[in-house]
Amino acid sequence: QVISVEWRSEKSLDAVESVKSELAKGSILAGAAITGDMLDPAKDATALALFIPSSLSPKHVRQVSRALQQAVEDERIARSGIDRAMLTRLADQPEPLTTRISPAGSEAKERTELRLLVPGAFMFLLWICVFTSANYLLTTTIEEKSNKVMEVLLAAASPMQLLAGKILGYSMVSAVMLLMYGGLGIA
């Protein structure tokens, strides 16, 4: 991406109004106002005022605001006298190395991802089976109705028996699919 931005700094906070009028005219890309309190490390970080024209894309707004936020953060850290690398190290939370111990005393590493992945995969498999069999059931019923097979079948069985048989049959087909894919996954 081409970035060709000229930066201009205004010392007086009175310049905010002129920045707004420049934005309205479309002569500048964006404007921001930083007060002394924002940069004071002893005070809480407050919201910085960002002024943008209505035509500026959300991506550009993100880029400009991220640069300004990061700059304010860097300045606050620099003013506090703390080394940034040390601050990152101090704020870094230690990762727990979890070991599950069974009643028999054996140890096993905790794998949280796997514990979530396996039920997720089975849920997805069940979803596939339900949707595939429901689709088959609907298609074949319409097909039998259209080529008069249904009329022949209805001479031998009641509509309730016919549909119950279809649903039962496709449930069995889904069960076979589930067993096949599930078995393959377990294997």
Partner: peptide, 27 residues
């Protein structure tokens, strides 16, 4: 789209512009 234009920062301390410029130009 290219990001082209002028950004005006009202900052009495005059310290934000060099930092923001460096951050924005870093890929």
């Amino acid at each position: 789209p290219p990001l082209v234009g002028t950004i005006v920062v009202v900052d009495p301390s005059d310290t934000i512009v060099p930092r923001a410029k460096a951050i924005l130009e870093t890929p």
